[in-house]
Design a protein around this nucleic acid. Structure first.
Lengths: 122, 122
DNA sequence: CCGGATCCCCATAGATACTG
DNA sequence: CAGTATCTATGGGGATCCGG
């Protein structure tokens, strides 16, 4: 093929890889809940507004599969299941904090840009 | 009061806000292409493997609406359209770089965790 | 050269009900 | 308490053709 060849791909790009891990709808919120330390299933659900059992379970399972979250079952009746960040999961926190501070600093500007843009659209 | 009230919500959480901006499928790749400076539409498309015209246009429009990308039309025949990061867009780059370096350092561990997890699942 | 418009598919997510 | 199971549907994303 002549001319420029692609040098950016979904599979190779590190940006995409992190996002693939972190960007499903509830993931960030669950990580946020886990920042405080070990926490039970029901407690997470109470803390996150509007999350369903299905989505919480699914999100936790993904995070566990990715090695970011540890699941510990205490065999008792009724059962107790505790979740916490793994060391790998902890390494993600600084990144998340940086995103958080970016949003705090600039989300207003983004919102303003949107309103400006939408005004022009009519 | 203790722990019985939700204190994490999609609307309020800064994490979710950034992700809402950055996490659609092609956004990160387009930002990556723009890191190098002003670039034409066709050039972006050639650089990003597998992106369709529709998705590129759509992604660029979103980024423009959010004030992260500037679109400049040079009235000529055939038309030339150039894209570049705005100052606001530039502020996002350090965050992206941090994500990128996290992925470089830890994506291997995530992949290993997945394989480990999937082995256990059978 | 750039992008709008249209049609279609499938993954993600929500609601609800049930179980160890 | 901590999940599973099932059913449904919304919309993101892909392919293709048309237009300025």
């Amino acid at each position: 093929m002549a001319g420029t060849t692609p040098d950016i791909s979904l599979e190779a790009c590190s940006y995409s890889r992190v996002l693939e891990i972190v960007s499903s709808k509830w993931t960030a919120l669950v990580l946020y809940a886990l920042e405080g330390g070990t926490i039970r299933y029901g407690e997470i659900q109470r803390r996150i507004e509007g999350i369903s059992q299905k989505m919480l379970t699914q999100t936790l399972k993904q995070l566990e599969r990715d090695g970011l979250v540890r699941r510990k079952v205490v065999p008792s009746v009724p059962p107790i299941v505790e979740y916490s960040l793994t060391p790998l999961g902890e390494t993600l926190i600084p990144c998340m904090l940086m995103l958080k501070s970016w949003a705090s600093a600039h989300y207003g500007a983004v919102k303003a840009a949107r309103e400006e843009y939408d005004r022009g659209a009519y």
